[in-house]
Structures are given as structure tokens and as C-alpha cells.
Simulated scan of single mutants.
Amino acid sequence: MSYFSSIKLITEFIQIDQIPEFDFTPTYHQVAQSWHPFPVVIFEDGATKLKYFEWGLIADYMNTPDKIKQYRSSMANARSEKILDDQRSVWHRLRKQRCLVFTTGFFEHREVGWKKKLPYFIKIKNTEVFCFAGLYNYSPLPVRETGELIGTFTIITRPANALMKKIHNHGPNSERMPLILTKALAQQWLHPQLTDEQMRSILAFELPEKEIEVWPVNTIRTRKADDERVMDALPKESLPGL
């Protein structure tokens, strides 16, 4: 996932009551297991707040360093089907702790029969900033030096639309995509009185494929400088078509 645009664009996407004073360092490519902070918006204590939370949720049961190390790597994404219909799931228990995860784009890999999968950069057409539906939680373990409880989040995924099925076409979580929200749905997602049935309607939303822009890029699974070159498009004539 990436966020390399102006934070100010988030305030144009959704009205925010509280904005932090510190600067955010742009990033062009981060995997969930880097625990990188991204801009999220939450409704807390009667106000809409912009925060910088780490990608990779720490649940309340991860109350020791060993448990965090053991379980956190699987908490980057939450399947939409579990939020309402699996009452034993941690995602069901956290369904009222909703957030918007802001991004300028994300990466997904396609199986094309090569030795390595082909990565794509994915964004919304004619849009610099958009958001995913997410859930958040504060870590139960404070930072030793400061006593701070860090904020963490997960991105909700849903069954993929037709375009994303072609790209995310392999692996245990294939044919899924992040739940991308319109501005109107984002506002509803944060509403503190959102009912489970209203939530079900939002979770069922599928962004039309015509609104998505994608292009193939060089491998992102090797260490590279965190700059715009990671999004450079490969020449299409040398690649299998979608």
C-alpha cells in the first residue's frame, strides 16, 4: 500500500474535527508486516479525528510481546463475511471500532505462469486519494518508553469485482479486494449509530471495475528505495493482457 499525496486531500474527502500537528512521511510501498503508520480517520469521543495508525491490528488478546509476535502478522486484513456473521470472530467484536484507511494506491500480484507473479499498481481513476473500510484497536501493551497505546488497523476485504479477479487470481486469499468506499459510504461507515443491517449494506458494496485504473510494474518483492519508481509501468506489449 502507498500514501504519497498531501494529507490536506483527506480533509477535502471528509470533514475532520481534529488533525494532528506532526508531519506524515510519504511512502510509495509498504507491506503490512512492516507495521508502517498510515493516515486513518476515526470517530472517537464525539469527534472525527485524523490519526496515524500502524497497519497490522493488535487485538486485546495479544497482551504479551510473544502473542503479538505470534498473531499480528495475520491481522492485516479482515474478511467482510466474518464481521457480522461470525460472532466468535475478533472482527465481530471490533465491528464498532470502524475507521477509514486512506491511500493513494495499492499493489496486487497476478499469476501469469512465470517464475514470479506479476505485480500491478491499482488506484481509482482521476483520484489522488481514496479510502478503504477498516477496523482499529489500540494495543493493550503500552510503549515502554512513553506509555503510549499505539493505534493499529486492519483493512476489510470483500469478494473481488471482475477486474480484480483477473489480477488477484492465485493463492489462499485469491479473488478478493479491499472494500473501497465512496465519499457517501465513508461518511456512513464512521457514523457512531450505524446499525448492523446498515453495515451489511456497506460491506456488500462493490466498486465498479470501470472506476479502477491498473498497470503492471516491476517486482516489489525485493528491497528497493521507497520512491515513485516503484510505480513505473512496464511496457504492455511484452506482457500478457488482462
Rank of each mutant, 00 (worst) to 15 (best):
S73D: 09
D60C: 03
Q30F: 10
T104Q: 00
I58A: 05
V90L: 12
F130M: 01
R72D: 00
K69R: 13
Y28M: 01
P26F: 08
D66I: 09
R72I: 06
D86E: 14
T127E: 13
F107I: 10
W55V: 07
D85C: 07
K82Y: 12
Y52E: 06
W55I: 07
H109V: 10
K125E: 11
D66H: 06
Y71F: 15
I58P: 02
L57N: 03
Y71D: 00
R79E: 11
V41A: 05
K51Q: 15
P39W: 11
Y28D: 00
P119F: 10
R88N: 14
I124Y: 05
S74V: 06
V40I: 15
L57R: 03
V40N: 07
V101R: 03
F53R: 03
G105K: 05
P26M: 06
E54N: 15
I42S: 04
R93D: 11
N77W: 13
T48M: 03
I42H: 07
F38V: 09
R72E: 04
P119G: 07
N77A: 01
Y120L: 04
A47T: 13
E111S: 14
T27S: 08
P119K: 05
I122C: 00
I83H: 02
W35H: 14
Q87L: 05
V90E: 02
E44S: 11
F132D: 02
A133Y: 10
M75W: 04
A76L: 15
S80K: 01
F121V: 06
T48E: 00
D85Q: 12
L94N: 04
H36N: 12
W91Y: 14
R88T: 15
V31H: 02
S34G: 00
I58K: 04
C131S: 15
G56V: 05
V112F: 09
T103A: 11
K96V: 08
S73K: 15
W35M: 12
T25V: 14
V41C: 07
